[in-house]
Amino acid sequence: MADNHLVSKKHQPKGLEILYEDRDIIVVDKINGLLSMGTDRDKHNSAHFYLNNYVTKGNPRSKERVYIVHRLDRDTSGILVFAKTEKAKMFLQENWSDFKKKYVAVVSGNFNDKEGIIESYLTENKMFKVYSTKNKAIGKFAKTGYRVIKETEKYSLLEIELFTGRKNQIRVHFADMGHPVIGDKVYGNTDKSVKRLALHSCSLTITHPYTQKEMTFETGIPQYFNTLMNLKGNKSQK
């Protein structure tokens, strides 16, 4: 059971909807534009900072805190899980590759193959931009699955399964295919009319660090994605 009684309006974390909470974990739905964790430039505008403030109820002497397990890009919205103990953090991170992660995205263009797998080796350049390389010695293996849910003349709405969790993996893989994620100014979609990066973590299945039970957390497709898909007549894929 979630500890719903802990939710206080006064300390409700900014930009986050709490999906589930107990003594070991806290699962949230993050808005786009919010960092998962702070940086040297921006230490306070992050999910991690707001959740620490939430669990301590603003009391700097509190021993309560949250621990980072994984991250989403600032411009990606969706499900984030944080641990509330170091033991829970270690368990989740050690088993992270076994957990099931699904995303939804709106990308440019239409696909000949309405379902498929993308594989490559990813590395970073000196400007910290991720790209695919054929050099296995410097790249890390990345694997992404996709299925077309709906199409318009301009866009495709995809359900994406992340088999590996490399930095910017989804964005690079679909840019490589010539179908960059809508709103992605870094990897090739420069449509200025788009308000945000159309990438959302919609489903996460984990093993609970204490009960060892499988738990799945889900959100719906962001309304803005549906707005993009309804700009023109569409055709659904069954």
Rank of each mutant, 00 (worst) to 15 (best):
N4W: 13
T144K: 10
I206H: 07
K238A: 13
S108P: 01
L231S: 08
K150C: 07
I170Q: 03
G15D: 06
S97G: 05
G58E: 13
E161S: 13
I138F: 02
L72Y: 01
E214C: 12
M37H: 15
K150L: 15
T216S: 14
L51K: 06
K63G: 14
V69S: 05
E115Q: 11
T219C: 08
H173V: 08
S77K: 04
K154I: 05
S46C: 12
L19A: 00
G139K: 09
Q93W: 04
F225P: 11
Y155K: 03
E151R: 06
S36W: 00
S236F: 12
E86G: 05
D176S: 07
G183L: 09
Q212A: 06
Y210D: 10
S201N: 13
T85G: 02
T56N: 07
R23W: 01
K114E: 11
D75H: 05
R166M: 13
K136Q: 15
L197R: 00
T144C: 04
C202P: 07
A142E: 02
S97I: 14
E214M: 09
T123L: 00
G165S: 01
Y187I: 08
H11T: 14
D24E: 10
N135A: 02
T207C: 09
T152F: 03
S193Y: 01
E115T: 08
F91Q: 08
V104C: 14
L197T: 01
K30R: 10
K150D: 13
H11G: 01
F128T: 10
N189T: 12
A198N: 10
T205D: 02
L162W: 05
T144D: 15
E124N: 15
L158Y: 03
D42Q: 10
K14T: 14
R147C: 02
V148T: 08
G58Y: 04
G165N: 08
G178F: 14
G139D: 12
D3K: 11
I149H: 08
T39G: 10
V104N: 13
K232D: 09
A2G: 02
D29M: 10
I221N: 15
A2T: 15
T216A: 08
V66G: 12
T39A: 11
K114A: 03
R23A: 05
N189H: 15
H11F: 15
Y210T: 07
